[in-house]
């Protein structure tokens, strides 16, 4: 799905390099690295928001920098670390905003769009929240709602920037489990940046780690590393 070869990542100056990494559908990748190692820069680069210093990133066999904004919005969805909720915006309507790339000039949702909204809400088991206002939710519920909106966008890739940073243990666990379920049932490529080493080991995700000493990004399949090894490599 995402093909990265001989790439240098950074904003003006190079933060780290990648020899060759393929990110595939059906898998959840936890992106790990020390503060300032370049996690956010990496996420911005694979979305094509900032260019790589050197090398090419291909999404679906196309250079990400050459994909127009509209096509990109049908390919990659993004979830922020925090969604504060918006006054007078109901959960259902918020999730419906994920359909924006597909609606006509007036933004009207078709019956099919409505169906996809309901399916996304069902996928995350938040039906009981559907008619609530996004400001009335707990932090955990809001994060699930934000994920539902990303699913509603029907992209092959979902990128989440520290989605669990503001959540308690139970909610962090729920978010990770949901992401794993979604990745396999909808066959999506999901990338989650996180500081929570235990959580990504426990949830058995693939690991993307920025090696602190070699300044290279490495990918490890699930269940291959221990926490001590993660700490050794990344921090």
């Amino acid at each position: 799905m995402i093909e990265i070869k001989q790439v240098k990542i950074g904003y003006k100056k190079c933060l780290f390099s990648i020899e060759e990494i393929h990110l595939e559908r059906g898998k959840v990748y936890s992106l790990i690295g020390a503060n300032g190692a370049g996690k956010t820069t990496f996420l911005q680069t694979i979305q094509g928001n900032i260019p790589a210093i050197q090398g090419l990133i291909k999404v679906d066999d196309k250079n990400i920098l050459e994909i127009d904004r509209y096509t990109k919005s049908t390919l990659i969805a993004f979830v922020n670390s925090k969604f504060d909720g918006i006054e007078y915006l109901k959960v259902k309507d918020y999730v419906g905003l994920g359909r924006i790339p597909y609606t006509n000039a007036l933004g009207r949702l078709s019956l099919l769009d409505m169906e996809i909204v309901n399916k996304s809400i069902h996928q995350l088991n938040i039906e009981k929240l559907a008619d609530l206002n996004t400001t009335e939710l707990s932090d955990g519920e809001r994060q699930l709602t934000a994920i539902a909106r990303a699913i509603c966008q029907e992209t092959a890739i979902i990128i989440l920037d520290e989605p669990t940073a503001f959540l308690d243990y139970a909610n962090r666990k729920i978010v990770m489990e949901e992401m794993k379920k979604i990745a396999s049932s909808l066959n999506l490529c999901i990338i989650i940046s996180t500081h929570d080493l235990e959580l990504c080991l426990e949830s058995e995700t693939e690991i993307l780690i920025i090696n602190k000493s070699t300044k290279k990004m490495q990918v490890f399949p699930k269940n291959q590393l221990l926490k001590s090894e993660l700490v050794e490599i990344g921090f």
């Binding site: 904004r69 919005s73 969805a77 915006l89 924006i100 000039a105």
Partner: peptide, 24 residues
């Protein structure tokens, strides 16, 4: 005004989210 309805709906989420929804 009719043509900015959809972008405005997206802008409610803030500039960066509107961008990822394909809004210029």
């Amino acid at each position: 005004s009719l043509f900015v309805i959809k972008p405005l709906n997206a802008l409610v989420l803030g500039e960066s989210q509107a961008l990822t929804l394909g809004i210029h």
